[in-house]
Design a binder for these strands. Sequence first.
DNA 1: TCCTTTGTACACCGAGCTGTGTACTTAAAA
DNA 2: TTTTAAGTACACAGCTCGGTGTACAAAGGA
Lengths: 210, 210
Amino acid sequence: MTKLEKGPQGRRRGRGARERILSASQQLFRAQGINRTGMDQLCAVAQVSKRTAYQHFTGKDDLVAEYLRRFDPDIMAGVFDRTDLTPRERLLAAFEVPTSGPEELTPLCPYIAATVEIHDPQHPASQYARDYKLAVAARLAETAREGGAANPEQLGEQLALLLDGASARTRVLNAESFPAAAAIAAVLIDNALPATDRDRGSEKGAVRFE
Amino acid sequence: MTKLEKGPQGRRRGRGARERILSASQQLFRAQGINRTGMDQLCAVAQVSKRTAYQHFTGKDDLVAEYLRRFDPDIMAGVFDRTDLTPRERLLAAFEVPTSGPEELTPLCPYIAATVEIHDPQHPASQYARDYKLAVAARLAETAREGGAANPEQLGEQLALLLDGASARTRVLNAESFPAAAAIAAVLIDNALPATDRDRGSEKGAVRFE
DNA sequence: TCCTTTGTACACCGAGCTGTGTACTTAAAA
DNA sequence: TTTTAAGTACACAGCTCGGTGTACAAAGGA
């Protein structure tokens, strides 16, 4: 009991250090931004010693890159995987607010945020951001093709642009912009998809989903 | 000539210190971002002593706010002032790339950049950003009304969203997105404006795009 | 000419940042 | 039980940043 009093005082949190670090990153980078989140604070929230953090990641840049990579695997899963919806409905579902809270705003897309904060197009984070954006557009195009769109790539790119616009504008205006984007999306989709799929038609189509 | 050798060495640049500072801000904040531009570098570029800078602005925050205020007066002048164009053409002109260089990308809207970098919605810069965005939407709505749009406010907000989307996406993808946004805008405008104004229509004024 | 305003040179402070070195402890696999 | 991988506490180096204090110099109107 010599100098042991301070040794295991904040007792061991076990092995999941890396997970805790990444989870704290997600929380803090979103809430405060990347540049305004210091490694000290991050380690405190993750309940991890600074030394441990730098054993798992070569530096903050590395951590940021990993933080972004985390979003990749589930590119808008829960939207594109919903086989119960028609392609048209799936495309529109991408604009539905995550329904987090009643008055809570949709947070700015972390890839846009990272690109602006990092500011270096060569940084891995910026690379991931491009890859992700292209992947989303491709997913949308794929669904558009499934729905029989005349030019699925164009529709995918257009819808992706709407998503980014809604994301950025929600942040700047501090007011939800996704409903407005969804309205535009509906127009574009109805213009691009054949009428047979336009099941939502007021009265003339009226096929409903088969 | 005792200690005078260093006195007037970098000789006086005259009275326009404030202008030089703001002009250097514009250059550096756009090129490097706000957070990555230190006051030392800024003063060096402006050819102004640090002391002088802090006599004109109470702090960096103040400077950032003034930097953004500079854009206000001419809210997209040169677009809305073009009386030679029909309202429809003016709305579309807002999407024309500033034609800076042949291969140069449209820079990210400084208000979006500042909002993301500053991250504090209470910061004057964020306030200005909101004000500016609302002003642009209002201008667009005004022109839409002039063109006889059924719901000018809605069209203005929609076009503003497209502009923001193109701006953000151009930055993230590192590829020009304004033409794609312009294509969407054309659809929305043609849907909203009465056929009489749809002078550009290829034939019969269909709502086609492409 | 004088005098006020504006700008200058430069050292310096304190805070916060990323990242490291060292000596130690613990959990769990072997 | 022994060994090893993972985690810890903490001080500290080194840097950049925003911002200030001081003493001085020049421009320009009166």
